[in-house]
Amino acid sequence: MSMLKVEDINVYYGNIHAIKGISFEVNEGEIVTLIGANGAGKSTTLNTVAGLLKPATGSVEFEGSSLLGVPAHKIVNRGMALCPEGRRIFLQLSVQENLEMGAYTRSSAEIADLIADVYDRFPRLKERYKQIAGTLSGGEQQMLAMGRALMSKPKLMMLDEPSMGLAPILVEKIFQIIEELNKAGTTILLVEQNAQMALSIAHRSYVLETGRIVNMGTGDELLKDDTVRKAYLGG
């Protein structure tokens, strides 16, 4: 069953036409990735689904109801969270305060349990719960960003380049966590520059080029596809 359904959206920044009629869907339980070069429109697509940008035309449906016209701050309550590009954690808030913000729409009774779950998954954050987030290392900040997104208990978690700027060993760890989350029942929509890794964990994948979807298939199909190999996997 399709959880997220995006149909023929066009998104503009002023007169820059960044997304030119994209359609895709994400089914419950899947890991779906969007891959593409810099500037292809991956972040724009996720930000539009999350309500930060408004599409000029087209429709976005989540669990059968339209998200058009729903303000961004009301979307998280529908069961969707975005872990944005560049992490965007609150640098001047403590680790724990960042997590609390992730559960902003939840009752305070639930928050303690949710925080305990995140600390179980990321013990490093627990050790540093009082630390100001701006003083965390890059890897810790990424864990915090993911933990914060998990605090809303999303059915669909969108991640925008979670591996950016991390050492290879941490990249592995992040992808491993994404797979774990998926096995535990969270549907994933993942944007990545690291196409190799992304395709290897994805059930299905879409390739974006200058605002259009130019290719799609299962992760394995795309890993073997010649044009994809040339463009994104280094030959």
Binding site: A50, H73, R88, L91, G102
Partner: peptide, 16 residues
Amino acid sequence: RAVSEDKDAARLMGIN
């Protein structure tokens, strides 16, 4: 404090 730091990130948290 979250809004004063990053409005879009705050929106993603569900903050009005």
